[in-house]
Design a protein around this nucleic acid. Structure first.
Lengths: 346, 346
DNA sequence: CTGAAAGCGCTTACAG
DNA sequence: CTGAAAGCGCTTACAG
């Protein structure tokens, strides 16, 4: 059952069937309803590929989740606590506008080639990237080929930067790092450590900057031996904090994400220390588990739902209206105070 | 840059370009490598829609996540802790075989029409359903139209049932309910309550059956006032258990999933009772948070990764080889003992 | 408002 | 082993 069949049955031309299907204006009401009836009766659905080949654009957008950490069994789930609400929201936003979303994971650099192919072979007409390292050249290449792109957490380095030619949605990582650290300072802490995230990502870079600025503004000196490196995985949090506590004296630690905080809490506990009595902890992201931890984790909430909606809706708009629309959003974050920090005694 | 351009540059016909692209045998090595070079040089990628229209089948499979609960903000995240590992594994399995996956949520019955359209307009050539209620007629319809389908957690009611014409992957919910309950019995509990899941779903139906059978086998009488209804959401767990504890006397409760267990634990705590000292709790699913709860939750692990791989791989195989392949798997589950249950004193 | 025709970019018998 | 041609199912100027 194709357009020609419908045309024959309805006694009109294929052109007219097409006009009805696409809801164009230049058809009599009578013709339209006659054709519509036949379409319904025979349950005719236009062949998407034929439509595309003839000029319609794809209603499929890509969502690409970058996670190039070496995967142990455990990690996967953790990273997905961050990506999963984002994914849900993208699908939700897309479906509402009759778009579909094709999701793919990027675990190694080579996977970017598959993504590029998806654009080139016209399967998708737009794409969202989340989890990429800052300045990722593979994404820049795709943007430069002229495809419609939205990126989460990317720095735009001036007008020459390809990232200025897409939709960028960032959270205020600097502000979040600042707030988190300031909160610890206000509680009376002096020796506040920081566990960094994967420094290839913008979030990690900005969160540590916020941390440093807060210390600076409060006149607390920055001690480099209190700053340690992680890679955003739970395991890295565990190791880094265990090592740190064995060497340094501190009463509080600001950790660049919640997954590492979970590992850190395990390390602290294993060393016989109590949270928050001995060590105060602030995380970042507010993933689902954080409110269920013992003690519940004080953290900075990143509004991933909202960011997903902005990325998806802007992208769809640009695609539907066939316009070049570029933007650079910075979404505010919020400190969520729970039970992992305590006021220092005076 | 299309096949005709490549053909002209390489000095061959479009047919030959097509043969090279599709890696057919009947081309001289010389011709092949010449064409391949040109393709690489000009970065030619065949138009996916044109290929499909000319007869190739779609390399996109659909993944449909059914969640028809009334959505409050909170629920969404909870349900996704169950779906998210499954989704990850499906994408992983698909990508490994050069398939892409298009994900869509079904929040109301009407959304099934969009799914059907995706098959009818040939965007996807196969699909996986997870979260559907048992016996879902909308899915039956799709199977009956002849599309390649895999379904998670569905009962197959004989050879006449449309579900016998697809790939069914179930976990052993009955066995899990049985094990969980038996474990509580062995710990010396007599008054073991059960909080059911959404009874429209096969898992809920089978889990309660396992519970009853375990009691029966142990000679413990089934008390209907100890069996209460939930709908798999955290909130329903909270409400049901609060009400239950106010009325009945019990020392243990087997809860049909972990999300409800989280709500239940909150209810128990609010009533001033301790887990496991006053009430032992066993959940089901082993979602990510469960091991982080306080106390960590004893639960039945459902191997969603494995189920996802079976569904995806079987489906892809059936699609690639263009065969009708039907199967009905029952995947074993495992009781994960943590700290939410205690041995009764003698 | 409507139809005949060209064209989108491939694949696949068919013939050689 | 290779090419000319038909065909996949649409949309969109163009002409009326």
């Amino acid at each position: 059952m194709n357009a020609a069949d419908i045309a024959k049955i309805a006694g009109v031309s294929r052109s007219t069937v097409s006009r009805v299907v696409n809801n164009y204006g230049n058809v009599t009401e009578e013709t339209r309803s006659k054709v519509l009836d036949i379409i319904k009766e025979y349950n005719y659905v236009p062949h998407a590929s034929a439509q595309m080949l003839a000029g319609k654009k794809s209603k499929i957008m890509g969502l690409f989740i970058i996670d190039t950490k070496d995967e142990k069994e455990g990690n996967k789930m953790c990273t997905s606590s961050y990506f999963s609400p984002f994914t849900d929201a993208v699908i939700d936003a897309a479906n509402k506008q009759r778009y579909n979303v094709l999701i793919s994971m990027i675990n190694e650099d080579n996977d970017y080639n598959n993504v590029k192919e998806l654009f080139q072979n016209k399967t998708i007409s737009a794409g969202i990237f989340i989890g990429a390292k800052n300045n990722e050249p593979a994404i820049k290449e795709i943007i430069e080929e002229g495809y419609k792109i939205a990126v989460i957490e990317q720095e735009v380095a001036g007008e020459q930067d390809p990232f200025s030619k897409c939709i960028v949605v960032n959270s205020d990582s600097f502000g979040g790092g600042y707030q988190a650290t300031k909160y610890l300072i206000q509680l009376g802490h002096k020796n506040i450590a920081h566990l960094c995230g994967d420094m290839e990502q913008l979030t990690a870079i900005s969160r540590i900057e916020g941390y440093k600025k807060a210390l600076l503004d409060a006149g607390v000196s920055i001690k480099n031996n209190l700053i340690v490196k992680g890679d955003y995985t739970e395991e890295s949090g565990y190791k880094a904090v265990k090592k740190l506590l064995l060497k340094e004296k501190l009463t509080a630690i600001f950790i660049a994400n919640d997954s590492m905080s979970i590992g850190a809490m395990r390390a602290i506990e294993e060393l016989g220390l109590k949270i928050p009595e001995d060590i105060s902890v602030v995380g970042f992201d507010d993933i689902e588990v954080s409110r269920h931890l013992q003690p519940s984790l004080t953290t900075v909430r990143v509004p991933l739902f909202q960011m997903a909606f902005m990325a998806a809706n802007n992208l769809i708009k640009a695609n539907d209206e066939n316009i070049d629309f570029y933007a650079n959003y910075k979404i505010p974050v919020e400190l969520i105070i729970r039970n992992s920090c305590k006021q220092m005694e005076v």
